[in-house]
Design a protein around this nucleic acid. Structure first.
Length: 865
RNA sequence: GCCGGUGUGGCGGAAUUGGUAGACGCAUCUGACUCAAAAUCAGACGCCAAAAGCGUGGGGGUUCGAGUCCCUCCACCGGCACCA
């Protein structure tokens, strides 16, 4: 029998078995409940990193557990294969992005297989392949028809040297990443998806998603940003014509305190006033330019200039001056705000700076108002004062009355504002899904007919950093107008890669369908029972996917409102950071493998030194694994040394899935040690020869204890996997069981049978985490049927029963002793036994026992005073 | 600033419903085995001289009993942010 655990052999054998039997191919089957376990698909960046290993191990443990529960499990995988890094790599290597991408996919697919994940590769989806992205294009055309997709001008970052549009991440400190040139803003026509149409539904439904983490739901709700208020119109006359200036406010109850109105630099009134006022024109220009520098925006001083114009207060009829303010955003509300300095901190600062009147109109509990300095209660809700007919009204009543009065005059209405903006999907990039439109000199913008889909992206171009190579590729650009047949130009913008990832989870259900985007199988698999991925996608990807699903539902393509029933956001993988900062030059980071940590005699770290030269290095704490900090651990190197099972085990044991996980070489070594002990325990047991059937009548007390522990462990691990999703505590419980097995005296036949049962339970319940070694050990335990086909065992309630229990005895809440009582002992006898305990008597001493609290099966608390 | 989260040994973490704080693992220390080392096995391991006492970020409260509930303060992490 195999004496030593050799992961490479064990893992190859198990994987061969799964491959040859097609174990993980998922087939729709109405006779079994389905379980769709979805992990966020990776961007094929090169090699797997530890974050991937953690993500996909969590998914695989859940999938394998659900399989053992009898569920028909689908666990698919694919590639989020379009995107900017491929273009950057292409520029660096002078290779087409396609080649780089497909090479990376091949490497990473091999690594995923080596990790033993139970994936259905028949459903593999690759977003840069025409058979996938043609459906992006097809659905985009449906969205155009329904008005969900539309065109308007948008602002882009323009690099004047490279003559190219830059993505936000290519702009560093306001400069182009390659040229260092100051980035300009340019207005160009772009396509948008009207996600704001779904704002209310997206907000309502996120409240219902009880299987999602609270913080993700909060982040989504904040991002959607519903704000209820009143739009108020301030009439004015310009060149003899009547106009109104609209503002949005959540504090209509303060409208009687308006002493000015401020508009954004881009507002038409500002433009109008600037035309005849050079000083104002310069200020407006400065504001527009300033908005490029994102970092400065937050700290910018509140500045403004009067336009010289004034508008009429809609209720009092007073003249109100119009200012241009650098703190007013054109993109939110109406691009104008009413200034109520008495009750808005920003307006207060503005009014103080420019000596504008401050008029109190809200009383908060009779506190004395002073215009000298802002007090935090000035912005609180209160009762109207100095507001004429509205005096004495509460905030809600005042808002309602004022809104009604404004509405009656046609100068206002209750309104809901959203923070959420429509989704701009046009990207002036090569490596993405072509937007299926044609520009014709006579017909204008013409959609590509469905029969001509997909618009195939040529995959042999090499970008050089200057512009989109599609624009110079005649074979792509030149085409005939589908409407009139005249020569026309094909659209060269491609889609945001968030489009690709907004529906891939639907495509897994119908990946082989060449004639339709989705089919009835979506109804079988969706919604995904479990979605697992990084918290960094808490907002955009998840919101876009929810939106996309609702759009497809409204187009009658799916019968589904929400795509993901349960969401698990796994934490980051972190590691120690070590560095040296030479007197001159840049900080040098050292990989933790190159560093030796010194400790004191209690094991507390005292310092670190480089193994190479023995000299000290500085400790930079713990941070997310990254190239820049040189603190990554390559999963491949780890697997080569310890095997996939050890990698999986450590990942699941070191921390609960939602928390960040700190890498530790010693901890990983400990995981390996545990697997070796498990291996040895099974083989030592098996080498003892045949095991008799378990005779429940002849169990010793120790045998009963081990049996009880084994079945308690079985129950706990099932609960931890299925309900709690705390894999770390499940593994700890199995470790305890194995510790008990090794302590157990297994000389008698009955004891051997009990140990056999305990080892079988340990192997079965660990199999979702470490499927290879358990596959092998299951055979060693004498089973012909492979472990993958086993069901989750049932807990034997008989084994859990016990005759006597140990109760903790407290005196005045402090632990003083233990008593052993019959499991069915009545309260009076438990109480008597506790009071008779010598330690209890010692601590009660002279005191009078006032009360005795008995918690059945747990403890006794003697209250004495 | 607003919203959300987290604070427990030298470290990662456990304590699921208010009921034994520190499971499990790592590190460290001691012992066995060994010529020796590694590996392995056995044991110790919150603080303290302690069978008392103290101890879950600080302070206060509720309770027979609080890591867990309430109030308050502090620190750190995340999200959003001139959002009107």
């Amino acid at each position: 029998m195999n004496e030593t655990y050799e992961p490479a052999l064990v893992e190859a054998a198990a994987q061969r078995h799964w491959d040859e039997t097609g174990t993980f191919r998922a087939v729709e089957d109405d006779s079994r409940p389905k379980y769709y376990c979805l992990s966020m698909f990776p961007y094929p960046s090169g090699r797997l990193h530890m974050g991937h290993v953690r993500n996909y191990t969590i998914g695989d443990v859940i999938s394998r557990y659900m399989r053992m529960q009898g569920r028909n499990v689908l666990q698919p995988m694919g590639w989020d294969a379009f995107g900017l890094p491929a273009e950057n790599a292409a520029i660096a290597n002078n290779l087409p992005p396609a080649q780089w991408t497909y090479d990376n996919i091949a490497t990473m697919k091999r690594q995923l297989k080596a990790l033993g994940f139970g994936l259905d590769w028949d459903r593999e989806v690759t977003t840069c392949k025409p058979d996938y992205y043609r459906w992006n294009q097809w659905l985009f055309l449906r969205m155009l028809e329904s008005g969900v997709a539309y065109q308007k001008t948008g602002t882009v970052n323009w690099d004047p040297i490279d003559q190219t549009v830059l993505a936000n991440e290519q702009v560093i400190d306001g400069r182009g990443w390659r040229t260092g040139a100051l980035v300009e803003k340019r207005e160009i026509p772009m396509y948008y998806l009207a996600i704001t149409r779904y704002a209310q539904e997206l907000l309502d439904d996120v409240q219902q998603l009880e299987g999602w983490p609270e913080r993700v739901r909060t982040m989504q709700a904040n991002w959607i940003g519903r704000s209820e208020g009143v739009t108020i119109a301030f009439p004015y006359e310009l060149n003899g014509a009547a106009h109104t200036l609209k503002v949005f406010t959540t504090r209509a109850d303060t409208v009687m305190g308006v002493t000015f109105v401020a508009v954004a630099a881009e507002h038409p009134l500002a433009t109008h006033a600037a035309a005849t006022n050079p000083e104002l024109a310069a200020f407006v220009d400065e504001c527009k330019r300033g908005s490029v520098m994102e970092a400065d925006l937050a700290t910018m001083e509140k500045k403004g200039l009067p336009t010289g114009l004034s508008v009429t207060h809609p209720l009092t009829g007073a003249a109100v001056p119009v200012w241009v303010g650098n703190y007013v955003l054109m993109g939110y509300g109406e691009g104008a705000v009413m200034g109520v300095p008495a009750h808005d901190e920003r307006d207060f600062a503005f009014a103080q700076k420019y000596a504008l009147p401050i008029r109190q109109v809200i009383d908060v509990g009779g506190q004395a108002y002073s215009t000298d300095a802002w007090q935090s209660w000035y912005g609180d809700a209160g009762v109207c004062v100095g507001s004429g007919t509205y005096d004495g009204l509460s905030q809600d009543d005042a808002i309602a009355r004022i809104a009604a009065d404004l509405e009656a005059r046609g100068l206002g209405s209750v309104q809901v504002q959203w923070r959420l903006r429509d989704w701009g999907i046009s990207r002036q990039r090569y490596w993405g899904c072509p937007i299926p439109l044609i520009h014709c000199g006579t017909c204008g913008v013409v959609p590509v007919p469905d029969k001509d889909l997909p618009v195939v992206l040529p995959d042999d171009l090499v970008p050089d950093g200057s512009g989109n190579p599609l624009q110079r590729h005649a074979a792509f650009v030149d085409c005939a107008c589908p409407a009139c047949g005249q020569p026309a130009r094909r659209e060269t913008d491609t889609m945001d890669t968030f489009v690709d990832s907004s529906w891939y989870f639907l495509r897994y259900a119908s990946a082989d369908n060449a004639t339709a985007m989705v089919d009835g199988r979506v109804g079988y698999w969706l919604p995904a029972d479990q979605y697992i991925g990084g918290i960094e996608h808490a907002i955009l990807h998840l919101l876009y996917s929810r939106f996309w699903t609702k759009v497809m539902r409204d187009l009658k393509l799916v019968d589904l409102g929400e795509p993901f029933s349960n969401l698990l956001t796994q934490g980051m993988v972190r590691n120690h950071i070590y560095f040296r900062k030479p007197a001159s030059g840049r900080v040098v980071y050292y990989n933790p493998t190159e560093v030796e940590v010194t400790t004191d005699d209690k094991g507390a770290p005292t310092g670190a030194r480089l193994k190479a030269d023995g000299l000290p290095v500085e400790t930079g704490g713990i941070g997310t694994m990254s190239k820049s900090k040189n603190n990554g651990v390559d999963p491949q190197a780890f697997i080569d040394r310890y095997g996939a099972d050890t990698a999986r085990l450590f990942m699941m044991f070191a921390a609960p899935p939602e928390l960040s996980l700190d890498w530790s070489d010693e901890g990983a070594e400990g995981a390996f040690r545990f697997l070796k002990r498990l291996w040895k325990a099974v083989h030592t047991h098996v080498s003892g020869g045949a095991v008799p059937a378990l005779d429940r009548m002849s169990l010793s007390t120790a045998d009963k204890d081990l049996r009880r522990l084994a079945h308690q462990t079985l129950a706990k691990v099932g609960d931890d996997y299925g309900r709690r999703r705390t894999f770390n505590t499940a593994i700890a419980a199995v470790m305890e069981l194995l510790n008990a097995v090794s302590r157990h005296d297994a000389t008698s036949a009955t004891a051997r049978a009990v140990v056999h049962e305990a080892l079988e339970i340990a192997v079965l319940v660990l199999s979702p985490v470490v499927p290879h070694i358990t596959h092998s050990l299951w055979q060693s335990l004498g089973h012909g049927r492979p472990l993958i086909d086993e069901r989750w065992p049932a807990v034997d309630d008989e084994a859990l029963k016990q005759d006597a229990v140990t109760l903790v005895v407290q005196v005045n809440g402090k632990l003083r002793g233990q008593i052993i009582v019959a499991v069915d002992a009545d309260e009076a006898s438990v109480r008597a036994q506790a009071l008779a305990d010598p330690t209890v008597q010692r601590f009660v001493g002279e005191l009078t026992v006032r009360k005795v609290i008995v918690v059945k099966g747990k403890l006794v608390n003697v209250v004495a005073a």
